[in-house]
Simulated scan of single mutants.
Amino acid sequence: MRGWRILVAEDDYFAADELVQALERAGAEIIGPAADLRQANQLARSGAIDAAILDVNLMGQLSFPVADTLAEHGVPFLFATGYDPAIVPYAYRDVPCFTKPVATHAIVAAMAATRSLQAAH
């Protein structure tokens, strides 16, 4: 994942910190972490990211507008949520969704797989 810029949108400080550390160990450059919808959307629109991890609920607001922005720009992403994964809209049914608490190694592996798939295309 060396050199890959990954947006982390997570409002829980400890969860964000754990993700950031794991992704950095894998060689990624972290964009954020963004703790609220406004900041996450701003970073998603910057065009300076290669992938993203989105907490479904950012400070009481659903992150699906950020997912929309990422999808429009062809940026792969995955969801992490403490809610039932059924909360994710049907349009994103094929996007990986991890239920919290999630092991960071599982998210890092999913990001690495996403990178491998993109490299193949």
Results as ranks from 00 to 15, higher is better:
Met1Val: 12
Arg2Glu: 10
Arg2Trp: 10
Trp4Gln: 14
Arg5Ile: 02
Leu7Met: 07
Val8Pro: 03
Ala9Gly: 09
Ala16Thr: 04
Glu18Asn: 10
Val20Pro: 02
Ala22Arg: 05
Leu23Ala: 03
Glu24Val: 15
Glu24Cys: 09
Glu24Ser: 12
Gly27Trp: 02
Ala28Lys: 01
Ile31Gln: 10
Ile31Ser: 13
Ile31Val: 15
Gly32His: 04
Gly32Trp: 00
Pro33Trp: 06
Asp36Ser: 04
Leu37Gly: 04
Ala40Ile: 11
Asn41Glu: 08
Leu43Arg: 12
Ala44Trp: 05
Arg45His: 10
Arg45Gly: 14
Ala48Thr: 09
Ala48Ile: 09
Ile49Gly: 04
Val56Thr: 00
Val56Met: 02
Asn57Pro: 01
Leu58Asn: 03
Leu58Gln: 03
Gln61Pro: 11
Gln61Arg: 15
Gln61Asn: 09
Leu62Asp: 09
Leu62Cys: 11
Pro65Trp: 01
Ala67Asn: 10
Ala67Gly: 01
Thr69Tyr: 07
Leu70Ile: 13
Glu72Val: 08
Glu72Ser: 12
Gly74Tyr: 05
Pro76Gln: 04
Phe77Val: 06
Leu78Val: 10
Ala80Thr: 13
Gly82Glu: 05
Tyr83Pro: 00
Ile87Trp: 05
Val88Asn: 03
Val88Ala: 07
Pro89Cys: 03
Ala91Tyr: 09
Asp94Tyr: 06
Pro96Ile: 08
Cys97Leu: 10
Phe98Trp: 07
Phe98Met: 13
Thr99His: 07
Thr104Val: 15
His105Trp: 11
Ala106Asn: 09
Ala109Tyr: 09
Ala109Trp: 13
Ala110Glu: 06
Thr114Ser: 14
Arg115Pro: 05
Arg115Trp: 11
Leu117Phe: 07
Gln118Tyr: 03
Gln118Ser: 10
Ala120Met: 14
Ala120Ile: 08
